[in-house]
């Protein structure tokens, strides 16, 4: 009980680094140690972290493709339905279904559908907006948006142990290790 109780009031342990290189190395070491429920925080995107943390490819491109297809079909469908079915009107003797005229709008709605999906999909998959998150409880974390790099191993990880994990993080030569309140 004594070991479980404190960690239940903890979100995780966070190590602070001052270079992107140190963060990537730390993430790789932590993954080799068997930690999985962890995240890295940085002021710049670091491509190497994807591999170090074992991130899977995002589903976003498929969402964007679906959005584009829906947008295109929607745009063309709207034109066909309104010009040929809802209110057929003879304009200069052209057929009601004068498809070449419908292409520019179809193109634009395809782009619009894809862009809206890219935007909404990215924020939804990232679960943002999220006004509160435990990592903000660490005072040093304010520099995560400026010049510092953080690795947080969460209590949710099966291998998490308050003392052993803290010791492991210390062994990575961080600037500091802090406890993250939930």
């Amino acid at each position: 009980m004594a070991q479980v109780e404190p960690s239940s009031t903890l979100y995780g342990l966070m190590a602070e680094f001052d270079t992107p290189t140190a963060l990537v190395a730390a993430a790789e070491r932590a993954r080799l140690e068997g930690y999985r429920n962890m995240d890295a925080y940085s002021p710049v995107p670091i491509e190497e972290l994807n591999e170090a943390l074992g991130l899977r490819r995002t589903r976003l491109p498929m969402l964007v493709l679906a959005g584009g297809i829906l947008g295109g079909l929607g745009g063309y469908g709207l034109e066909y339905w309104s010009q040929a079915i809802a209110y057929p009107m003879n304009v200069g003797g052209r057929p009601y279904h004068s498809w070449p005229h419908f292409i520019p709008v179809t193109f634009e709605t395809t782009v619009l559908g894809a862009a809206l999906c890219a935007f909404v999909g990215m924020w939804m998959l990232n679960k943002l907006p999220m006004p509160y998150h435990p990592v903000f409880n660490v005072p040093a974390f304010a520099r995560a948006s400026r010049d510092r790099f953080f690795l947080c191993i969460e209590t949710a990880d099966p291998r998490f142990d308050r003392h052993a994990t803290a010791k492991f993080l210390e062994s990575l030569h961080p600037v500091g290790v802090s406890e993250v309140a939930p």
Partner: peptide, 25 residues
């Protein structure tokens, strides 16, 4: 800021979205 915290998982999707938006634009 929508609660942006610079998470690596977020950056990963963010960069993808940014690239896709560029491709679409």
């Amino acid at each position: 800021s929508l609660g942006w915290r610079g998470s690596a998982r977020h950056w990963h999707r963010y960069e993808m979205a940014y690239l896709l938006l560029a491709g679409i634009s």
